[in-house]
């Protein structure tokens, strides 16, 4: 069977699910951020697959570049926040960081 759009979408789906699961279950803030990276990557796989099989143009790839750019910004800010949290609470377990609790 020839490799088509669906194959890529399935890979994207699986990576996405793994990402969502990571985000939901991890208590380590860095782990949560890794989950977010997985989700963003699955989106990128889909974008490029659509771009290749759907329009055949470059728009999907360009959007992926923006996604990568945002992921880089997000990682930088996210990890800076994590370091800030660590400095303040001496832990990065998101369960123990709950100053916003009502």
């Amino acid at each position: 069977m020839e490799i088509g759009l669906n194959h890529y979408l399935v890979v994207g789906l699986l990576v996405f699910l793994a990402g969502v699961f990571t985000v939901l279950t991890r208590r380590n803030a860095i782990g949560v951020l890794m989950g977010v990276e997985l989700v963003l990557n699955s989106a990128n796989i889909n974008y490029i697959a659509f771009s290749r099989f759907g329009t055949g143009g470059l728009e999907g790839q360009i959007f992926s570049i923006f996604v990568i750019m945002l992921a880089a910004a997000e990682a930088a800010i996210g990890l800076a926040i994590v370091l800030g949290i660590y400095r303040k609470f001496q832990t990065i377990d998101v369960e123990e960081v709950d100053s916003l609790r009502g």
């Binding site: 890529y8 990276e37 490029i48 771009s51 290749r52 992926s64």
Partner: peptide, 14 residues
């Protein structure tokens, strides 16, 4: 998927 530039960017950035 024929996105050679993106593959390079992915390696570099990620």
């Amino acid at each position: 998927l024929g996105a050679d530039f993106l593959a390079a960017v992915q390696l570099l950035v990620y």
